[in-house]
């Protein structure tokens, strides 16, 4: 709790400033400036939404609701639909969560429960530095280092194994085993969101009162039981918030995905096939686009805005609720 006088002195500056003549105007100016700067955040967010709505409106008007359900993307005939990009975005982000969440939670548990004291700081630092690496570097790593290895040791053997099988045969069969595709994008995204989820989850686990863990160990629980029955229930809401935050990042990630997803406009049931996401399509086509194609790309941007902002709002509400409690 802040001290009472602080509230009086700063939340009601007029009372304090009333006495001083010359410095009063300066004081007001400072207050107005800081208020204006804070409003800037509101203006920018409104501006982002306004500008892409304005740019995407012609496409929404032209295609109507069919824009969402059409898988066409043809520059020649000017037919545009968002379906492939939306599915690619959701699929790659979902794969990223499926791979990234267990790894992040593992790292968080290791750092807070198992890691010997001397190694804690360097290990935490290593994981956090992963978050600082620019996304384009992940793209290059994914395309030049990971994709060839992935094609050789996973795609080709798995494709050979499942060829002709029902369901798995369609889901895991790569027509061209080049290493790029939705699954590769999911893995790269997973690596990119792991440091975020891990560091938030670690903070949340650290906040759990030590006495809870100690009592659990005291009655003879194993580490697994402490994690499963004490730590996870305590931190579950905020961990879900952290996961949603990672999801928001994965949905909007551009450069890394553009490198490894293959940028094909094709609806395929196989997660090894190339596809595209909303962000990768905008990055690829925007500079050469004009007319209706530009509007269609802006409309894709609108859809991305809505999806990510809903996810991020839920994430922030979940992580905040715990902080307040």
């Amino acid at each position: 709790m802040p001290a009472l006088t602080e509230t009086i002195a700063l939340a009601r500056p007029r009372a304090a400033a009333a006495r001083k003549g010359p410095s009063r105007s300066l004081d007001t100016l400072f207050r107005v400036c800081s208020y204006g700067a804070a409003l800037f955040v509101l203006v920018v967010l409104a501006g982002i939404l306004g500008s892409i709505l304005y740019g995407g409106w012609p496409a929404f008007r032209e295609f109507g609701f069919a824009f969402l359900t059409s898988s066409a993307w043809n520059v020649g005939t000017e037919q545009y639909g968002a379906l492939v990009a939306v599915i690619g975005t959701v699929a790659s982000a979902t794969l990223a969560l499926l791979i990234g969440v267990p790894v992040s939670l593992g790292i968080a548990v290791y750092l807070t429960q198992l890691c010997p004291g001397w190694a804690r700081k360097p290990v935490a630092m290593t994981i956090e530095l992963l978050a600082a690496v620019p996304s384009i570097i992940y793209g290059m790593w994914g395309l030049f280092v990971f994709a060839p290895l992935f094609a050789r040791f996973i795609q080709i053997p798995v494709s050979n194994l499942v060829e002709g099988m029902p369901i798995v045969g369609t889901l895991f069969y790569a027509r061209v085993p080049s290493g790029v595709g939705v699954f590769t994008a999911g893995i790269i995204l997973a690596i990119m969101i792991v440091p975020f989820i891990a560091s938030i989850a670690r903070d949340m686990l650290d906040q759990i009162p030590t006495v809870l863990r100690e009592s659990a160990y005291g009655i003879g629980c194993t580490t697994w039981e402490v994690v499963r029955h004490v730590l996870v229930p305590q931190a579950s809401v905020s961990i879900i918030g952290a996961i949603m935050l990672g999801l928001g990042r994965a949905l909007g990630e551009t450069m890394a995905v553009t490198f490894v997803i293959g940028n094909a406009n094709r609806l395929s049931a196989s997660i090894f096939d190339p596809s595209s996401t909303i962000a990768s399509r905008i990055a690829n086509e925007f500079n050469e686009a004009d007319g209706l194609q530009l509007n269609a790309l802006m409309a894709l941007g609108c859809i991305l805005f809505v999806i990510t902002f809903v996810v991020l709002i839920i994430a922030r509400l979940l992580t905040r609720r715990v902080k307040a409690a």
Binding site: L45, G47, I52, G252, T254, L312, R316
Partner: peptide, 16 residues
């Protein structure tokens, strides 16, 4: 909103 802007997709800022 600032916290949301913190993790907003940077490509949308480019479009803006």
């Amino acid at each position: 909103l600032n916290d949301i802007l913190l993790s907003a997709p940077s490509i949308l800022i480019g479009l803006f």
